Computed example of a mutant assay.
Amino acid sequence: MKSLKYLFILLMALPVVGQDFQSKKDKTLWNDFTYDVGNIFGGVGHAYSRPFHWKGNDWANFGYLTGGTLLLFTVDDQLNDWKNGFREDIPDFVIDYGHEYGSPENNYMLTGGVYLAGLFTKNEKLRRTGVLLISSATAGGFLQQVSKRIVGRARPKSGASSSTFDPLHLDRVYDYDSFPSGHAMLAFSNAYAIAKQFKNPWVKAGIYTVGLVPGFVRVMDDFHWISDVAFSTVLSIFIVESIDRYLDSKYDEKYNDNEKKLSWNLSFGPNTMGVSLRF
C-alpha cells in the first residue's frame, strides 16, 4: 500500500517536472531571438493599426500635432532666414554628430547593439529595450520614406520656398523629399525609448537633448524646415509609446507602469502661442 502511495506521488510530480524541464528547454538563445523578431514585426503592425482604434483624446492629440505643424509651416521661410545668422557658430563636432547619428545605418548599429547585448547576457529588460528601439525605428523609417514620396516638399537647400511641392513619386526625388525628417525621427525615437529606462527627470532631459541634436543640425544645414523636424519629433513619441504598450503584453519586464500618458496643453496670449507636452 505504501508503494502505491509513493507511485501516486511520483506520477503526480512527473508533469510538474516535465513542465519545468520544458520551460528551461524553451528558454534558449534561438527561441528568445525568434520570439523577439516576432515582437518587432508585431510592434510595427501595432503602431500602424492604432489610428483605427483612436478615441477622443487620441484624435485631439493628432489634431494638436497637425495644427502645430501647419502653424510652423506659415513661418518656415522666416525661421530659415533667421537661423542662417548663427550657422557658423556651431562647432563642427556637433554638425558631424547630427548628420551621422540619425542616418539609418548608424541607427541600426546602435539599436542592434543594444538588442544583442540583452540577448547574449539574457537580460530581458535590455532585450525588450532593443526590440522597442528596432521596431520604433522600422515603423518610423518606413513611414517617413513613403511620406517623402507622397508629399514631395522642397528642401531649403533647393532654393525653393517652403510652400513648394512636387508630390506623388514612386522614386525618391532629391531636393523634394524634405517632409518628414528621417534623421529627426530616428534619433528622437532612440532617445525617447532609452530615456524610459530612467526615472530621474534631469537624466531624461539630457537624453532628449542629445536626441534633438540631429534634427537641429538638419535644419541648420538646410536639409529640413523647422516644421519637418517638429512634426517628426512628436510623431516619433507617438510611435514609441504605441509600441511600448504593445510590448507590455509580451514581456514580464515593464518600465512604464507608473508613467502617465501623453498630455497636451495649449496656451495663447498677445502675439504668443505655447504648446507643452507632458510625458
Rank of each mutant, 00 (worst) to 15 (best):
L4E: 15
K5L: 14
K5M: 13
Y6V: 12
L10P: 06
L11K: 08
L14K: 06
P15L: 08
V17C: 13
Q19R: 14
Q22N: 13
Q22E: 12
D26L: 00
L29C: 06
L29G: 05
W30M: 02
N31S: 06
F33T: 07
D36K: 05
G38F: 01
F41S: 02
G45S: 03
G45I: 06
S49Q: 13
W59S: 01
L65M: 08
L65W: 05
G67H: 12
G67W: 11
L72S: 03
V75C: 09
V75H: 11
L79G: 08
K83V: 13
N84S: 15
N84V: 11
G85H: 13
E88K: 13
V94K: 04
D96K: 15
G98E: 01
N107Y: 12
G118D: 04
T121Y: 09
K125E: 10
I134M: 04
A137S: 14
A139K: 03
F142I: 15
Q145Y: 09
V146I: 13
V146K: 05
I150A: 10
R153K: 00
K157D: 11
S162I: 01
S163E: 12
P167Q: 06
L168M: 14
V173H: 11
D177E: 00
S189L: 04
A195M: 07
A195I: 00
Q197C: 09
V203A: 10
K204C: 01
F216T: 09
V219G: 06
D222K: 10
F223G: 13
L235F: 13
S236R: 00
I237E: 02
I243A: 02
I243K: 01
R245E: 13
D248I: 03
K250A: 05
Y251S: 03
E253C: 04
N258C: 07
K260G: 10
L262Q: 09
W264H: 11
W264Y: 13
L266R: 12
G269A: 08
N271L: 12
N271T: 10
G274E: 11
G274C: 05
L277W: 10
L277Q: 08
F279S: 07
